[in-house]
Simulated scan of single mutants.
Amino acid sequence: MNLLLLSNSTQYGRGYLEHALDTVTGFLPQGARLAFVPYALADHDTYTARVRGALEPAGISVHGVHENNDPLAELAAADAVFIGGGNSFRLLSALYRTGLREAVRDAVRGGLPYMGASAGTNMAAPTLRTSNDMPIVQPPSFDTLGLVPFQINPHYLDPDPGSTHKGETRAERLTEFLEENDVPVLGLREGSWLRVDGAVATLAGERPGVLFTRGAPARELPVDSDVSALLGTEPTFDSPAA
Results as ranks from 00 to 15, higher is better:
218 A>N: 14
79 D>I: 06
63 H>Y: 13
15 G>H: 06
94 A>V: 09
22 D>P: 05
95 L>Q: 02
105 R>T: 07
158 D>M: 15
24 V>W: 00
200 V>N: 12
175 T>Q: 15
138 Q>P: 13
148 V>M: 08
185 V>C: 06
111 G>I: 05
205 G>Q: 01
14 R>W: 10
121 T>Y: 00
242 A>K: 15
178 L>C: 13
53 G>L: 12
86 G>H: 05
39 Y>R: 03
36 F>Q: 04
225 S>V: 11
97 R>S: 10
197 D>S: 12
125 A>S: 09
126 P>K: 01
149 P>K: 04
216 A>T: 08
221 L>H: 09
31 G>E: 05
6 L>D: 01
94 A>S: 13
209 G>Q: 01
229 A>D: 15
90 R>I: 09
97 R>W: 10
168 E>A: 15
70 D>R: 12
84 G>S: 05
180 E>N: 14
55 L>S: 01
21 L>H: 02
218 A>Y: 12
231 L>Y: 06
96 Y>H: 04
53 G>V: 07
235 P>I: 09
27 F>Q: 00
136 I>N: 10
48 T>L: 04
152 I>E: 05
157 L>A: 14
75 L>D: 00
150 F>S: 00
176 E>G: 14
38 P>S: 08
128 L>K: 01
89 F>G: 01
229 A>R: 13
41 L>V: 15
25 T>K: 03
29 P>Q: 03
66 H>W: 13
